[in-house]
Design a protein around this nucleic acid. Structure first.
Lengths: 242, 242
DNA sequence: CGCGAGGTTGACCACCCTCAACACGCGTGG
DNA sequence: CCACGCGTGTTGAGGGTGGTCAACCTCGCG
């Protein structure tokens, strides 16, 4: 019932580094089991001290923070291959919450073994740091987007980023990919109001640039979109999978 | 002329973890030298593949990204103890630029030895990941601030965060600390226009909350400021220094 | 003395927010 | 079967926060 790391369905995608036999053996020991959750289930809570680390195996979710005044910032959309819980693992406490938006399957690791990983598996430790640096990079980009771009540009940026990540994971069918989020989620991710997000999405759809409908994201004019998002099209960078 | 890691002037501050003799010995080997730069000197450039890693020892700077349209996002203010260049070290290319705003002294490390560090110094590797996760956490907070807060709140947040970090480093004198940045830098950090930043700073000064003048930041009403910034006052968390 | 960098201020207006109402599909219970 | 509530998407009206433009001031420096 539980996926063996040697047959990990994600590993076959080009974006992910491959492992040798020893490394696979370690992952197999490191993996404690799997967790299946329904949409809406909170996986990690801000301020909690969860003893578990996860890698998303199937399904999608989102990472967010809640302010004292009730406002919410969506920090990231979670896709398969994303590693969750490192902050609690290292710093003792989660700084954001994570919630599933579709049914999800996650690999579960024991935080107590993090130290073993650093001690005995320097390659994996390196990968972990790599992932953390990648996330840092993404957040820097997001900050730049929210801080300096208009509503049309932000939506272009967010949707294109999301689509590209989906495509690298084999989740896209041509120029379409699943998008199990509400407009409110997008709005909270990009620092826009729900109403303005709606109107801007409408504009982008009418201009035949992108369309978000019925849980699907469709890229209609990739070039114009990339332009508006101020993103260059580049070959996906290989990354570690833990 | 060059500071010996055993006598590192930063290490004495409470915020930083202490090292045992072996660890100090490694740091001494890892440290290749020092770099002194003048204000305005670029230390790292976006897109470059610098072979060097740095730790700021003295002086201040800032980290920023430039968009194709010329707009700039200041990602972070650099203070002593901050580690620079990890992204290039791991992912091959810097994703942002770093520039000095005061005279700075930096410890220089060789990126090629990063792997040695992971292989032979798991504690240091752990610390490196810790730092990366901390930066990730900070960026998540910044995103939330820029995405969800008003101008007054953002400025409160940015200034209080900066002041707290300064104080933990012994750089504050009572409720004052050096602030070698222009209003334009603050504006670019918080996603506001220069003019609006100016007017909002004025408002905060008149209300006797905080004042930014002549390269100095003064906290006039810490409680109100923390309130407006939606930040709780907590004991500084100890962190690694590399 | 002239110049440039940074700070300050006012006028104007646009982008985006808020409020409010309505449409639509779905599940539940009467 | 329909009524109802709920969550989500859609649309319009009105206003405020914050952006842009432009001018002026101060200060340090050559």
């Amino acid at each position: 019932m539980v996926v063996d790391c040697a047959n990990c369905p994600l590993r076959k995608f080009e974006v992910f580094d491959s492992l040798n036999r020893d490394e696979t053996a370690f992952m197999r020991r490191f993996k404690h089991g799997e967790l299946k959750v329904d949409p809406g289930t909170p996986l990690l809570m801000e301020g909690s001290n969860s003893p578990q680390l996860y890698t998303a195996l199937r399904g999608m979710g989102l990472r967010y923070k809640i302010l004292p005044n009730g406002k919410r910032q969506v920090v990231n959309f979670i896709l398969p291959g994303d590693f969750l819980g490192l902050q609690a693992g290292l710093m003792g406490e989660m700084q954001h919450s994570v919630e599933a938006t579709t049914p999800m399957v996650l690999c579960v690791f024991d935080r107590a073994e993090l130290w073993t990983l650093f001690k005995n598996e320097p390659e994996r430790a390196f990968d972990l740091t790599w992932l953390s640096a990648m996330e840092e990079h993404f957040l820097g980009d997001a900050l730049t987007s929210i801080g300096q771009m208009s509503a049309v540009e932000r939506l272009s940026w967010g949707l294109l980023r999301y689509f590209t990540k989906c495509r690298d994971l084999g989740l896209a069918d041509g120029s379409r990919c699943p998008f199990p989020y509400r407009q409110q989620d997008l709005a909270d991710a990009l620092g826009l109001s729900l109403v303005h997000t709606n109107k801007t999405l409408m504009k982008l759809r009418q201009r035949q640039i992108v369309s978000v409908q019925d849980g699907c994201l469709t890229i209609l004019d990739h070039d114009t979109l990339a332009d508006s998002a101020m993103l260059e099209v580049k070959r996906p960078q290989r990354r570690p999978l833990i």
